[in-house]
């Protein structure tokens, strides 16, 4: 008996469907079926954040998330944040602050930063360190990442002020 089932969800704003096996993880399905390169499996254990995806507005480690649980949800990845014509202010801040070297961890850091700034528009250093504790950067760009998050917060807050 096959346990395959069709799941339907919204991927980066567009409705999609695919057949999945119960044991498939969301990170594998996004990469293999939908060519989403912005989620990467690194630790596979929920520790590093390279596989971060946003499911119904909530950040999850897609390496620990069964693809079938995405049925009926809205899934967003870094591909949905800005476009090559117009980057999100957080993406711009990461580039300006030099907060990446190889860039493998960057989608996860940026998506988590967006969640952080939605909750704490003016985060303290402690808030930033705490919130990003589940994101690891093997190139160790941590000081620049901290600076990028603060720069992004300033940008977002000044953009939010009435002109």
């Amino acid at each position: 008996m096959s346990n395959t089932r069709t799941i339907r969800f919204t991927l980066n704003g567009a409705p999609v469907k695919t057949d999945v096996e119960p044991h498939e993880t969301l990170v594998d399905v996004l990469r293999q079926r939908f060519n989403i390169g912005g989620v990467r499996e690194s630790c596979g254990q929920g520790l590093c954040g390279c596989c971060t995806a946003i499911v119904d507005g909530i950040a999850v480690s897609s390496c620990l998330f069964l693809a079938m649980f995405a049925d009926g949800t809205a899934v967003d990845t870094i591909e949905h944040l800005g476009s090559s014509h117009r980057l999100d202010p957080i993406q711009e801040a990461f580039i300006e602050a030099g907060a990446l070297q190889c860039g493998f961890c960057t989608p996860g850091f940026i998506l988590m930063t967006k969640q952080l700034l939605d909750i704490h528009p003016v985060p303290s250093d402690d808030d930033i360190r705490h919130y990003l504790a589940g994101n690891l950067c093997r190139c160790s760009a941590y000081p620049e990442i901290l600076a990028a998050v603060k720069l992004a917060a300033r940008r977002r807050n000044s953009a939010a002020e009435p002109a």
């Binding site: 954040g49 971060t52 999850v60 480690s61 620990l64 988590m112 705490h130 504790a133 994101n135």
Partner: peptide, 12 residues
Amino acid sequence: MRTLANPRVRNV
């Protein structure tokens, strides 16, 4: 809660 795992794990 602040000492447990990380925000993504706590979301789930």
